[in-house]
Design a protein around this nucleic acid. Structure first.
Lengths: 115, 115
DNA sequence: CGGCTAACTAGCTAGCTGGTTAAATAAGGG
DNA sequence: CCCTTATTTAACCAGCTAGCTAGTTAGCCG
């Protein structure tokens, strides 16, 4: 059961930005606050906040509340959705060559029969 | 050996468009000309041509020449690059929980020792 | 050659994106 | 209650994107 097309749109679009990919990679190692996520970047906090909103809207992250902190959490499901789409295309691609191989074996077989 | 960041930028950006994903999915089944690729879409040919240029620039497709046709061919390497990035994040994520499991087993072990 | 088909380039527009600064909101803590 | 810290919202700007139409290039074929 593949995820919806517009979900894929927003997920791939989110992953197209290097800052956002770095945030995702950071969150794969564990939850973090906005300030922690912002630290490695030469970018204003509102800039990071915008990126987080993009990631949240496509479901790649979720945010809870802890006092005045809003810890971010990576949601694997959205990541899986994107990976699944690519995997499906690669599967179709591979099948094509499997069939080609099979065909070539059939031809080989015929040749053997006639020898 | 991961692919370059800006290559990932453009690959994910290319995959963020549903028309382009459909084109990629179509090409996974086999090469096709521009007109063949355009057929399923309610879009002008130059529009499709632009999408193909986007796909070509990020390496997802290549084009050869055959008379006045320019058959498009899916390049799996770029698709692999994107899949690899996602896979790496998922791996890091999983390791985290593996370590957590290990830790929980250690605690359990200690408990057993003291019982 | 002249015409047909395939595909691309040019030039335009509306809308989105990624960034900024300045100001606002939220919540703990003396 | 005021101060500080964490984070968001507002307002703005430059640049990119996806789409269009119209015109152009490339190459087959009669």
């Amino acid at each position: 059961m593949a995820i919806a097309a517009d979900q894929l749109d927003s997920t791939f679009a989110a992953l197209a930005d290097p800052t956002r990919r770095a945030i995702v990679a950071r969150l794969a190692r564990g939850d973090a606050t906005v300030n922690e996520l912002a630290a490695p970047f030469a970018m204003s906090l509102p800039g990071i906040s915008k990126h987080l909103k993009v990631l949240e809207r496509c479901g790649l992250i979720s945010r809870s509340r802890n006092a005045q902190f809003r810890p971010c959490h990576l949601e694997r499901v959205a990541l899986d959705g994107a990976a699944d789409w690519i995997e499906e295309s690669r599967r179709i691609w591979s099948e094509r060559f499997d069939k080609l191989d099979e065909h070539l074996r059939d031809i080989q077989q015929e040749g053997d029969d006639h020898d």
